[in-house]
Amino acid sequence: LADDRTLLMAGVSHDLRTPLTRIRLATEMMSEQDGYLAESINKDIEECNAIIEQFIDYLR
């Protein structure tokens, strides 16, 4: 059971955070005209990261 939990934490961490990191990188490359959009996307990314952290904390 502990091994399954560790594997799940690693999978969640990698499989969800990697795309979020790519999205954040894309927002950094957006033009200044789209700053409001990038800010909104980054806020959503932070919310997703917080949910992931809560899930990982729960698994521990």
Rank of each mutant, 00 (worst) to 15 (best):
A10N: 06
R17G: 06
I56Q: 08
I52Q: 05
N49R: 06
T27L: 02
P19H: 09
I41V: 15
Q54R: 11
G11L: 07
I41M: 02
M9E: 08
I45V: 09
L16P: 05
L16N: 01
M30D: 15
C48Y: 01
D34E: 07
L16D: 00
L20E: 07
T27P: 10
Q33H: 05
D57S: 03
I41Q: 02
I56F: 07
Q54V: 09
A38R: 02
F55A: 00
L1R: 12
L8V: 12
P19C: 00
S40Q: 03
S31G: 05
I51S: 10
C48T: 07
H14G: 01
D57P: 13
I52E: 07
L25M: 12
D57M: 08
I23Y: 03
L7H: 06
E28W: 00
E39K: 08
S31I: 06
I56E: 00
R24L: 10
S40I: 14
A2M: 03
R5Y: 09
L8D: 05
L1E: 13
R22G: 07
R17E: 04
S40N: 13
Q54H: 04
M29L: 07
C48R: 12
F55P: 04
E28K: 15
K43W: 11
G35A: 06
D15C: 01
D34L: 10
A38S: 07
I45E: 04
A26R: 08
A10E: 05
L16E: 02
A10M: 02
P19E: 00
G35F: 06
T18G: 12
E53Y: 14
T18K: 00
E39M: 08
L7C: 06
M29P: 09
I52G: 14
D3K: 04
S40Y: 08
N49P: 04
L16G: 04
L1N: 13
I51F: 04
L8F: 08
L37M: 11
S13N: 11
E28L: 08
T6F: 12
D4F: 07
I41F: 02
M29G: 04
T6P: 12
E39N: 09
R5S: 10
T18M: 13
S40F: 13
N42Q: 04
E46V: 08
M9H: 04
S13G: 08
L1W: 11
A10K: 08
A26P: 15
R22Q: 09
L7Q: 05
N42M: 00
M29I: 05
T18N: 11
D44E: 01
L37T: 05
L59P: 10
R22T: 03
E46P: 10
M30A: 07
G11S: 12
E53D: 13
S40P: 12
L16C: 02
D15T: 02
C48E: 02
I41C: 03
Y58S: 10
S31K: 06
G11C: 13
D3H: 04
N42P: 05
E39I: 12
I41T: 15
I41H: 01
G11E: 08
I45F: 15
F55T: 02
Q54F: 13
S40L: 00
M30R: 06
A50W: 08
L37D: 09
I23R: 00
S31E: 07
Y58M: 15
P19K: 09
L8H: 06
L7Y: 00
I52T: 12
D15H: 02
E46K: 02
D4S: 10
E39H: 11
H14W: 01
I45L: 15
D44S: 13
M29T: 10
A2G: 11
T21N: 01
D34P: 13
R17T: 10
T27Q: 02
S13Q: 13
T21D: 10
I23A: 08
T27E: 10
L16W: 14
M30I: 00
C48N: 14
C48K: 03
I51T: 03
V12F: 10
A50H: 04
R5E: 15
Q33L: 05
R17S: 09
L20T: 13
Q54W: 10
T27K: 13
E32V: 06
Y58D: 12
L1A: 11
S31L: 07
I52M: 12
T18A: 03
I41A: 00
M30V: 15
Y36H: 07
E28H: 07
Y58P: 15
R24K: 14
G11D: 09
E39F: 15
L1P: 13
A2F: 10
L1Y: 11
M30H: 11
R5M: 01
S13D: 13
D4C: 13
G35K: 08
G11R: 13
Q54Y: 08
M30F: 14
H14P: 03
E53C: 12
L37A: 07
E47A: 15
E32P: 07
A26I: 06
L7R: 09
D3F: 09
A2I: 15
A38N: 07
Q33F: 06
L16S: 13
I52K: 00
L59V: 08
N49V: 15
F55R: 00
L8S: 02
D44C: 03
E53G: 15
T21V: 10
R22L: 05
I45G: 07
M29E: 03
D3P: 09
I52H: 02
G35R: 06
L7K: 15
Q54K: 13
D34S: 12
T18I: 11
A10L: 09
T21S: 14
D34H: 14
A26V: 08
N49S: 09
E47I: 14
L8P: 08
A38I: 05
P19R: 10
A10Q: 02
Y36W: 08
R17P: 08
D44M: 03
L7I: 12
D3R: 05
I41W: 15
T21M: 10
R5A: 12
E39G: 13
S13T: 04
R24N: 09
R5K: 10
C48G: 05
S31C: 06
F55M: 03
R22F: 13
A10G: 01
I56S: 05
E28Q: 14
S31H: 07
C48I: 03
L25G: 11
L59Q: 10
Y58W: 01
L59N: 15
L20I: 00
R24Y: 02
D4T: 10
R24M: 04
R22N: 00
R5T: 14
L37Q: 15
M29Y: 15
E28Y: 10
E39D: 12
S40D: 15
I45A: 05
E32R: 07
D44V: 08
P19A: 15
L8E: 05
I51D: 11
H14E: 01
V12H: 06
Q33I: 05
R5Q: 08
G11V: 04
Y58R: 09
D44I: 07
A26H: 01
A2S: 09
E32F: 06
M9G: 00
K43H: 00
S13W: 14
L25N: 02
E53I: 15
I52V: 09
T27C: 03
E47H: 14
A26N: 11
I23N: 01
T21F: 08
D4H: 14
D34K: 13
Y36P: 08
M30C: 06
Y58I: 08
R22E: 00
E28D: 07
A2V: 07
D57Q: 15
A26E: 14
R17D: 11
P19M: 15
Y58E: 12
T18F: 13
G35M: 05
A10I: 03
A38T: 05
E39S: 00
I51H: 04
L20R: 02
E46D: 08
T6L: 13
L8W: 09
L8M: 00
A38E: 08
T21I: 04
M30N: 09
T21H: 09
L1Q: 11
R22V: 05
G35D: 06
R17I: 12
E47N: 14
D4N: 09
R24F: 10
F55Y: 03
Q33V: 04
T6W: 15
I52R: 11
I56D: 00
D44T: 05
R24D: 00
F55D: 03
M30Y: 07
D3W: 14
I41Y: 11
I41L: 00
R24V: 03
A2E: 04
D57G: 09
R22H: 02
L59T: 14
L16I: 00
L37S: 04
N49G: 08
R22Y: 03
A2K: 07
H14R: 00
M9S: 14
D4I: 12
R5C: 08
E53V: 04
I23W: 00
L8C: 05
Q54G: 10
H14A: 03
F55G: 00
M9W: 11
D15M: 00
T18S: 00
